[in-house]
Protein backbone atom coordinates (compact mmCIF):
# COMPACT_ATOMS: atom_id res chain seq x y z
CA UNK A 1 0.00 0.00 0.00
CA UNK A 2 2.69 2.47 1.02
CA UNK A 3 4.74 1.69 -2.05
CA UNK A 4 1.68 2.39 -4.25
CA UNK A 5 1.10 5.80 -2.61
CA UNK A 6 4.72 6.91 -2.78
CA UNK A 7 5.21 9.64 -5.40
CA UNK A 8 1.52 10.64 -5.64
CA UNK A 9 2.19 14.29 -4.69
CA UNK A 10 4.89 14.61 -7.33
CA UNK A 11 2.62 13.16 -9.99
CA UNK A 12 -0.21 15.53 -9.02
CA UNK A 13 2.23 18.47 -8.99
CA UNK A 14 3.51 17.51 -12.44
CA UNK A 15 -0.04 17.32 -13.81
CA UNK A 16 -0.78 20.77 -12.34
CA UNK A 17 2.45 22.14 -13.74
CA UNK A 18 1.59 20.87 -17.22
CA UNK A 19 -1.91 22.37 -16.96
CA UNK A 20 -0.47 25.71 -15.84
CA UNK A 21 2.02 25.72 -18.68
CA UNK A 22 -0.78 25.00 -21.12
CA UNK A 23 -2.73 27.95 -19.68
CA UNK A 24 0.36 30.10 -20.17
CA UNK A 25 0.67 29.03 -23.81
CA UNK A 26 -3.05 29.73 -24.46
CA UNK A 27 -2.77 33.14 -22.77
CA UNK A 28 0.24 34.05 -24.93
CA UNK A 29 -1.60 33.06 -28.11
CA UNK A 30 -4.66 35.12 -27.02
CA UNK A 31 -2.39 38.14 -26.47
CA UNK A 32 -0.85 37.67 -29.91
CA UNK A 33 -4.30 37.42 -31.54
CA UNK A 34 -5.60 40.55 -29.81
CA UNK A 35 -2.52 42.51 -30.96
CA UNK A 36 -3.13 41.38 -34.55
CA UNK A 37 -6.78 42.41 -34.30
CA UNK A 38 -5.81 45.85 -32.98
CA UNK A 39 -3.48 46.41 -35.94
CA UNK A 40 -6.17 45.12 -38.36
CA UNK A 41 -8.63 47.74 -37.04
CA UNK A 42 -5.96 50.38 -37.48
CA UNK A 43 -5.12 49.13 -41.00
CA UNK A 44 -8.75 49.43 -42.04
CA UNK A 45 -9.04 53.07 -40.95
CA UNK A 46 -5.74 54.01 -42.64
CA UNK A 47 -6.95 52.41 -45.87
CA UNK A 48 -10.30 54.20 -45.65
CA UNK A 49 -8.73 57.62 -45.10
CA UNK A 50 -6.48 57.09 -48.11
CA UNK A 51 -9.18 55.65 -50.37
CA UNK A 52 -11.75 58.33 -49.47
CA UNK A 53 -9.30 61.04 -50.55
CA UNK A 54 -8.69 59.35 -53.88
CA UNK A 55 -12.44 58.86 -54.42
CA UNK A 56 -12.87 62.63 -53.93
CA UNK A 57 -10.36 63.19 -56.76
CA UNK A 58 -12.38 60.87 -59.02
CA UNK A 59 -15.51 62.82 -58.12
CA UNK A 60 -13.65 66.03 -58.96
CA UNK A 61 -12.82 64.62 -62.42
CA UNK A 62 -16.46 63.71 -62.90
CA UNK A 63 -17.43 67.30 -62.03
CA UNK A 64 -14.83 68.70 -64.41
CA UNK A 65 -15.60 66.38 -67.33
CA UNK A 66 -19.17 65.08 -66.97
CA UNK A 67 -19.94 64.87 -70.70
CA UNK A 68 -16.76 62.83 -71.32
CA UNK A 69 -17.73 60.45 -68.52
CA UNK A 70 -21.29 60.03 -69.81
CA UNK A 71 -20.04 59.49 -73.40
CA UNK A 72 -17.55 56.81 -72.32
CA UNK A 73 -20.15 55.25 -70.04
CA UNK A 74 -22.77 55.20 -72.82
CA UNK A 75 -20.21 53.65 -75.21
CA UNK A 76 -19.63 50.85 -72.68
CA UNK A 77 -23.07 50.19 -71.24
CA UNK A 78 -25.90 52.22 -72.78
CA UNK A 79 -28.97 50.01 -73.41
CA UNK A 80 -29.78 52.16 -76.46
CA UNK A 81 -26.58 50.98 -78.17
CA UNK A 82 -26.57 47.43 -79.60
CA UNK A 83 -24.44 45.14 -77.45
CA UNK A 84 -22.11 44.27 -80.35
CA UNK A 85 -21.24 47.96 -80.87
CA UNK A 86 -20.42 48.70 -77.22
CA UNK A 87 -16.83 49.17 -76.09
CA UNK A 88 -15.41 49.34 -72.58
CA UNK A 89 -12.09 50.82 -73.73
CA UNK A 90 -13.07 54.48 -73.43
CA UNK A 91 -14.61 54.10 -69.98
CA UNK A 92 -11.40 52.39 -68.81
CA UNK A 93 -9.41 55.32 -70.24
CA UNK A 94 -11.50 57.69 -68.07
CA UNK A 95 -11.03 55.54 -64.95
CA UNK A 96 -7.39 54.55 -65.47
CA UNK A 97 -6.10 58.11 -65.31
CA UNK A 98 -2.47 58.26 -64.04
CA UNK A 99 -3.55 60.80 -61.35
CA UNK A 100 -5.83 58.13 -59.89
CA UNK A 101 -2.82 56.14 -58.67
CA UNK A 102 -1.29 57.21 -55.36
CA UNK A 103 1.73 55.68 -53.65
CA UNK A 104 1.96 56.57 -49.97
CA UNK A 105 4.87 55.58 -47.74
CA UNK A 106 3.84 55.77 -44.07
CA UNK A 107 6.31 55.19 -41.26
CA UNK A 108 5.40 55.14 -37.57
CA UNK A 109 5.80 53.15 -34.35
CA UNK A 110 2.68 51.08 -34.87
CA UNK A 111 3.06 49.32 -38.23
CA UNK A 112 6.62 50.29 -39.09
CA UNK A 113 7.24 51.30 -42.68
CA UNK A 114 4.36 50.44 -44.99
CA UNK A 115 3.83 51.45 -48.62
CA UNK A 116 0.20 51.83 -49.66
CA UNK A 117 -0.72 51.72 -53.36
CA UNK A 118 -4.15 53.17 -53.96
CA UNK A 119 -6.00 53.48 -57.24
CA UNK A 120 -9.49 54.02 -58.58
CA UNK A 121 -10.78 50.68 -59.84
CA UNK A 122 -14.39 51.34 -60.88
CA UNK A 123 -16.82 54.17 -61.60
CA UNK A 124 -20.33 52.78 -62.02
CA UNK A 125 -23.44 54.76 -62.81
CA UNK A 126 -26.68 53.39 -61.36
CA UNK A 127 -29.94 54.46 -62.91
CA UNK A 128 -33.31 53.41 -61.57
CA UNK A 129 -36.46 53.61 -63.66
CA UNK A 130 -38.06 56.31 -61.52
CA UNK A 131 -34.77 58.18 -61.22
CA UNK A 132 -34.32 58.53 -64.97
CA UNK A 133 -37.44 60.63 -65.17
CA UNK A 134 -36.00 63.23 -62.84
CA UNK A 135 -32.41 62.91 -64.07
CA UNK A 136 -31.27 61.52 -60.70
CA UNK A 137 -28.64 58.79 -60.71
CA UNK A 138 -26.14 57.27 -58.32
CA UNK A 139 -22.42 57.29 -59.05
CA UNK A 140 -20.53 54.48 -57.34
CA UNK A 141 -16.77 54.97 -57.09
CA UNK A 142 -14.46 52.19 -55.91
CA UNK A 143 -10.88 52.59 -54.80
CA UNK A 144 -8.52 49.67 -54.22
CA UNK A 145 -5.65 49.92 -51.75
CA UNK A 146 -2.85 47.32 -51.75
CA UNK A 147 -0.09 47.02 -49.16
CA UNK A 148 2.11 44.51 -47.41
CA UNK A 149 0.78 43.64 -43.96
CA UNK A 150 2.76 43.16 -40.72
CA UNK A 151 3.12 39.42 -41.36
CA UNK A 152 4.58 40.11 -44.85
CA UNK A 153 1.29 39.10 -46.47
CA UNK A 154 -0.08 41.05 -49.45
CA UNK A 155 -3.36 42.73 -48.52
CA UNK A 156 -5.86 44.33 -50.89
CA UNK A 157 -8.86 46.30 -49.66
CA UNK A 158 -11.62 47.94 -51.66
CA UNK A 159 -13.50 51.03 -50.44
CA UNK A 160 -16.74 52.07 -52.12
CA UNK A 161 -18.61 55.36 -51.95
CA UNK A 162 -21.86 56.25 -53.65
CA UNK A 163 -22.87 59.81 -54.60
CA UNK A 164 -26.21 61.08 -55.79
CA UNK A 165 -25.82 62.85 -59.12
CA UNK A 166 -28.28 65.01 -60.99
CA UNK A 167 -27.75 64.45 -64.69
CA UNK A 168 -29.56 67.64 -65.71
CA UNK A 169 -26.91 69.74 -63.99
CA UNK A 170 -24.16 67.04 -63.94
CA UNK A 171 -23.15 68.23 -60.48
CA UNK A 172 -23.00 65.62 -57.71
CA UNK A 173 -25.05 66.40 -54.63
CA UNK A 174 -23.38 65.40 -51.36
Amino acid sequence: MSIKRRGTAVVIALIFAILLLQMGVIYTSILRTSKTQTSRIDERSRVEFLANGLIELALLKFRFLPSDFYASYDAALSPTIPAVNRSNEYLRSFIEDPVFTIKEQVEDSLLGNVEYNAQISEMILHTVATGTRWGVQALEIRATVAFTGPDAENVTRTVTKVYRVDRSSTAPVN
Binding site: S45, R46, F49, L50, N52, G53, L54, E56, L57, L59, L60, R63, I102, E104, V106, E107, D108, S109, L110, Y116, P172, N174
Partner: peptide, 12 residues
Amino acid sequence: KTYRLVSYKARL
Protein backbone atom coordinates in the same frame (compact mmCIF):
# COMPACT_ATOMS: atom_id res chain seq x y z
CA LYS B 1 5.58 56.71 -30.00
CA THR B 2 4.48 58.12 -33.33
CA TYR B 3 1.29 57.47 -35.25
CA ARG B 4 0.77 58.90 -38.73
CA LEU B 5 -2.45 59.15 -40.70
CA VAL B 6 -2.59 60.27 -44.34
CA SER B 7 -5.62 61.39 -46.31
CA TYR B 8 -6.52 63.61 -49.24
CA LYS B 9 -9.31 66.10 -49.75
CA ALA B 10 -10.67 67.64 -52.92
CA ARG B 11 -12.13 71.10 -52.49
CA LEU B 12 -15.49 70.05 -53.95
